[in-house]
Nucleic acid binder design. Structure first.
Length: 511
RNA sequence: GGUCCAUUCGUCUAUCGGUUAGGACGCAAGAUUUUCAUUCUUGAAAGAGGAGUUCGACUCUCCUAUGGACUACCA
């Protein structure tokens, strides 16, 4: 039997979307597209305490930037709307009650404080407190109280929760698309809270299972941190009688810190100077900011490509993939099992690869705003041409200004090292000669200038290095840049002569 | 502490019982070059440890070690 592939990305709006979350979304998207299925965006905002304003918008904009398209969900609607769990709140209580009636769940009246006290007490005795079959009959629950008593407490407004009645000593057999077969004894699990009366909202576990069922989700692709609660989720499907349409699960490996232990966190980025978020973020509460790949000059395609290869590989030696190619190649059984350490250097390498493949037109569009910031007004053609000449040595679009500024503005200072090396001896006099040679050239194209000047250097038996580097000092002001004739052809004859005259009159020769 | 997951060059990874264990990033050396880069070539660099199973194990099983996740009325 094969049913329509329907996957969901279900983040919680508790802050900016982390790059690990983006990867989860990406894998869901690739899987959906690969199998001509649907990609759903569901917002899991069942924790009223941790809600962060702007987080949802951030998530949506991040996915959009990455080219991850949503078929159904928050922002686009769909047949199972609403897709924000806070707007679905009246759905869940019904299902919680259904579980109680079927004997799979029960009311519990303990307060958080009481439970904290019990945990502390157990801890001092060197034990661990587990809310499960060993204690639930002794605590204030609908299992230990009469039906009348329970109804009375609810009627009088006591705070209650619904807990899952985890069976004792049963083996849950599970299958994960990435990890294979997993089995767990239910005695090691506890009675998780499914619904809380305090805010009339379900917890993740209930909401997740109910919504995945209602939204006909076929595959749950999520982070490895969810693996420990998989048995509960299996049991919930069983308790509801939904095992026939239960989705298949795939738990993705974690993204790890570049150095040291643990999973990638915001602080790593701050410390080591690379972004952990797709977009720039400013916390509305604290005003704290965090770098984003987009604002730091990464191309979305490069970011996506890098992320895709962090935990998945095609089995070939290909590393550069467009989104279309990723969709064509992606499969869950080539996702690795172990956590992937994120490496900033590799991210930069990917970006450089994409930079090198950009056309002059694309580069012009990206480069123009930077040129304007520096007060340079040029045609797209010229902007693109300059960028095109230098793109091979750029990693980020923002590198381009340093790399090409001398195409647009004459040097105002001269690099000390180059000056010391070349602005001495016969070189200034030779530069005057070069000036005359250049002044005599009519066809100032790269090829012609190179031919004429080259022949002249040979004829005079001058040192190529001395002449060219002195000229470079005059035109660029530093010991860097592309081939000299790229510069002469770009800035043109008049500007060339102007820059030569400038250094001749303004810079005093060494010694 | 308990439960679960994982373990190949520094890092990302290939290998689905038989390979000189391959590629990429980074690193080093060399070549090219009028500068800085780019590019190219080359090099160093790995199966956590121990038992099995097998003619043969990086690959299968078990144990140990290490790392990680989870262990909230958070997701």
């Amino acid at each position: 039997m094969s049913r329509e592939v329907r996957v969901r990305f279900a983040p919680s709006p508790t802050g900016p979307l982390h790059m690990g979350g983006v990867r989860t979304a990406l894998y869901n998207y690739l899987f959906a597209r690969r199998h001509s299925g649907k990609m759903i965006l569901r917002i899991e905002d069942t924790d009223s305490q941790r809600f962060v304003p702007g987080a949802e918008e951030y998530i949506i904009e991040s996915l959009k930037w990455c080219g991850i398209e949503i078929d159904e969900g928050v922002g686009v609607g769909g047949p199972h709307a609403p897709y924000r769990q806070s707007e679905r709140r009246e759905i869940y209580l019904k299902y919680a009650k259904q579980l109680i009636e079927a004997g799979w769940a029960y009311y519990a009246f303990d307060t958080s404080e009481e439970l904290d006290a019990l945990r502390k007490e157990a801890e001092t005795k060197g034990e661990t407190f587990a809310y499960n079959y060993t204690v639930r009959e002794k605590l204030p629950t609908s299992l230990s109280h009469s039906k009348e008593e329970v109804e009375a407490r609810i009627a009088r407004g006591d705070i209650w929760v619904v807990r899952f009645k985890m069976p004792e000593n049963e083996i849950v057999e599970m299958d994960d698309l990435i990890r294979g077969h997993v089995r767990v004894n239910t005695s090691t699990l506890d009675d998780k809270v499914l619904y809380k009366s305090a805010d009339a909202l379900p917890t993740y576990h209930l909401a997740n299972i109910v919504d995945d069922h209602l939204m006909e989700v076929s595959h749950v692709i999520r982070g490895e941190e969810w693996l420990p609660s998989l048995p509960l989720h299996y049991l919930l499907y069983k308790a509801f009688g939904w095992t026939d349409t239960q989705p298949q699960f795939a738990h993705l490996p974690l993204l790890l810190k570049p150095t040291g232990g643990g999973k990638l966190s915001k602080r790593d980025g701050d410390k080591m100077g690379f972004p952990v978020f797709p977009l720039f973020w400013k916390s509305p509460a604290t005003g704290e900011t965090a770098h984003g790949y987009r604002e730091d000059g990464y191309f979305a395609e490069a970011f996506v490509n890098m992320l895709a290869l962090l935990g998945w590989n095609p089995g070939t030696e290909q590393e550069l993939f467009s989104m279309e190619q990723l969709i064509a190649e992606f499969s869950l059984d080539r996702v690795s099992k172990s956590g992937a350490r994120f490496q900033p250097d590799k991210a930069k390498w990917f970006n450089a690869q994409y930079m090198h493949r950009k056309s002059d037109e694309e580069l012009a569009a990206l480069f123009q705003p930077i040129l304007k910031e520096h007060g340079v007004e040029v045609s797209d053609e010229l902007a693109g041409k300059a960028a095109g000449i230098m793109k091979e040595r750029a990693t980020f679009i923002t590198d381009l200004w340093d790399l090409t500024s001398y195409f647009f503005v004459a040097p105002t200072t001269y690099e000390e090292k180059q000056t010391k090396k070349y602005w001495k001896g016969e070189n200034p006099a030779r530069l005057r000669e070069v000036r005359e040679v250049l002044a005599s050239i009519d066809d100032f194209s790269k090829e012609n200038t190179e031919a004429v000047v080259g022949a002249w250097i040979q004829e005079k038996e001058y040192g190529m290095g001395q002449i060219m580097n002195t000229l470079r000092l005059a035109l660029v002001g530093a010991g860097k840049g592309p081939g000299m004739y790229d510069v002469t052809a770009f800035i043109g004859k008049e500007e060339c002569l102007k820059r030569i005259d400038a250094i001749l009159t303004n810079l005093k020769p060494i010694e």
